[in-house]
Amino acid sequence: MRAGMILGAGLAGLALLAAALSLVWTPHDITQMAIAQRLQPPSAVHPFGTDQFGRDILSMAMLGARVSIAVALVAVGIGMGAGVPLGLIAAAHRGGWIDELVMRGNDLVFAFPSLVIAILITAVFGPSAINAIIAIGIFNIPVFARVTRGGALPIWTLDYVRAAEVAGKGRALISLQHILPNIANLLIVQGTIQFSLGILAEAGLSYVGLGAQPPTPSWGRMLAEAQTLVTLAPHVAIIPGLCIVLTVLGLNLLGDGLRDALDPRLKTLR
């Protein structure tokens, strides 16, 4: 399993690196069109070939990584930012009305097909990367609330937490000082998983035109544009798809590896 985790970290790291590098440098300028160079197969000058406007696909994919990763990352941030406090409050006041509200709200959001709601949100408020972030982020909130609550409940029964309670510490302070550090592992693992799901969701939304808008390249949009060209130049469709698959695969392997490394009990199941 070690090997899987290293492979995963490598793949995810590569995507992050490509996205970071694109901030300062790309092999070619993608605002330059060169119609004479269009739909060229991979070559030394264009390692991934060119698209229908003669733009370098490697450069496009690097810029696309930026959008995909930024959207998924901010969506995880929204989910954690709202979900973790909700989960902590629910666990601190377990059985109380806040707990009930958080859990019922959770059930409801889980009953919704997230993609459909994301489509509704972007349809109503207009397609944009920001709305895609909000639509994906909203569905991360109950996920993190549930994981946080589930992880926090058993810790509340531990002796040292009881001792802190007896010593007069408030529930909020205990949640921050004792509960949160103990469930940090859990949150990191869940964060990795939601990150990869976010990349898939962003790709889907962009593909149907509800994510990043032209001229911003994103992997999903590159695939949408490639759809009519796929018979002429398969590489135009294959490259962005591979970017998505390898990044998501990397994050999933990393998440699985982290979970095993951080929770030795699970190893016995394998």
């Binding site: 889907g204 469709a237 798809g241 998505i244 698959v245 390898l246 998501v248 695969l249 999933n252």
Partner: peptide
């Protein structure tokens, strides 16, 4: 199965069309 989970279904669909239809 790890690979299967990472596949965006619409991209997989395009590959299927490329292979089985084209």
């Amino acid at each position: 199965t790890q690979l299967g989970i990472a596949l965006p279904n619409f991209w997989f669909a395009m590959l299927l069309v490329l292979l089985f239809s084209v």
